[in-house]
Design a protein around this nucleic acid. Structure first.
Lengths: 230, 230
DNA sequence: CAATCCGTGTAATCGGTGCTTACATTCACA
DNA sequence: TGTGAATGTAAGCACCGATTACACGGATTG
């Protein structure tokens, strides 16, 4: 977050009275500053987490003055909202892609895929996952992109579980409870990973992915219809 | 976080050449500034979450100059560490108190109490819970108070689960997996509550506590030894 | 083609923050 | 009784988000 002003004396527009459209000379208008700022912010989140994002730094990376971003995002929060929407969009795309090749006849198997894909993405994109889920970093309620994508994912798991139930794959459980418990499980594990809890629980980084799959399986075993003992 | 300087002209030490120890006249030395700052920070966390804590605001509430806190806490992070230690201490005390009256003959029942007490405290003290778990707000590895209290709690659940296993209350599971899955479940639910996910999952605030107990029971049912069908 | 309008970027500034340095005060101990 | 260490103050740095007044220039329109 600290940086020494990056060539302070070499400001823009040194002495030329009229640049006369040199291609290398940066034009007054940027082209697509909004997109560039968003990309810079995404990159900052990836590098140092949500709080590493500062409007000024994004402006610096875009090669633009500190006030310029406010033409495109009325506040830092608005920028973070856009970042969260982008992240949520990618997240959803990945989840749905992971489910694409799954056989539709096995809802519980698809539920398992869902959980594992969820954890996979979360562990591979911890900072972006954090920004999506942690509302502290942006205003969920005001971000239609996030909430609609998210609602889509919630509906997806809901339908999958309902199918599993009606296919007789589940024990006699309250579906809503199972749903929320499943979510809490994967969300909790993802956050344990993000928040650095896993080492304290004896899980090395290398094992984390296997452990993620294991606890998903453990959960599924727990809710599966019990047709035989032990 | 914004405040208009709070009576800017009425600075300390108005005109009196020597206060001669009036009881109301604040002495140069504060007495126990460290404690007061810590309390102020705890209160700030309670009011507006971890990021509502600013060194200057804590100093303001303690009635002291902005630089004074740095005599007691070398950085904001150090202050946050102290806050986290205090919160973790309270958390552990509450958990252990909840377990005090539990019969030692029923480890699984104690495990259940453990989970419910965990969720209870987390949901009643969301911001303090967040600061304990979210490493973003302080340096876990450097905070011996937090990690030792936390290790104690981890050991407690570990022992409880091991007892349940040897008492034949558990199915044939990998104990470490069960442990981590259990933790992920309660941690995930607590964070869902903190992060405001529950409404999106159709859980109103009033139901949250009941739902917490339900998913703990669901989990325990899933790992219990299966002696009969359905 | 020319004039003007408005979207976009710049410069300067404000109050907030964490943190450091130099100085003032007072307590505790020799 | 002195004196040094501990503790608080004052001032100032760089950074931040945000606002305002102004400069530029592409697009629309007469």
């Amino acid at each position: 977050m600290r940086r020494p002003a990056k060539t302070p004396p070499a400001g823009r527009r040194p002495a030329k009275p009229r640049p006369a459209r040199t291609p290398a000379a940066k034009p007054y208008h940027h082209g697509d500053l909004r997109r560039v700022l968003l990309d810079a912010a995404m990159q900052l989140v990836g590098e140092g987490g949500p709080e590493a994002v500062s409007v000024r730094e994004a402006a610096r990376r875009a090669g633009v003055s500190p006030g310029a971003p406010f033409r495109h995002f009325p506040s830092r929060d608005a920028l973070m909202n856009a970042v969260a929407e982008e992240a949520q969009r990618r997240f959803r795309a990945e989840i749905e892609a992971a489910l694409a090749g799954a056989p539709s006849g096995d809802p519980l198997g698809r539920f398992r895929r869902l959980g594992i894909a969820y954890l996979r993405w979360a562990m591979q994109n911890p900072t972006h996952f954090e920004i999506i889920s942690s509302r502290r970093f942006f205003d969920h309620d005001r971000s239609v992109g996030v909430s609609s994508d998210n609602a889509e994912l919630i509906g997806l798991t809901e339908r999958t579980l309902a199918e599993a139930l009606s296919a007789g794959q589940l024990g006699a459980h309250d579906l809503k409870q199972v749903q929320i418990a499943g979510r809490a499980l994967v969300y909790g594990f993802a956050r344990m990973h993000i928040d650095g809890h896993l080492p304290r629980w004896g899980v090395a980084d290398a094992e984390a992915e296997q452990m993620a799959a294991d606890i998903v399986d453990l959960f599924i075993a727990g809710i599966t219809r019990r047709t035989s003992q032990v």
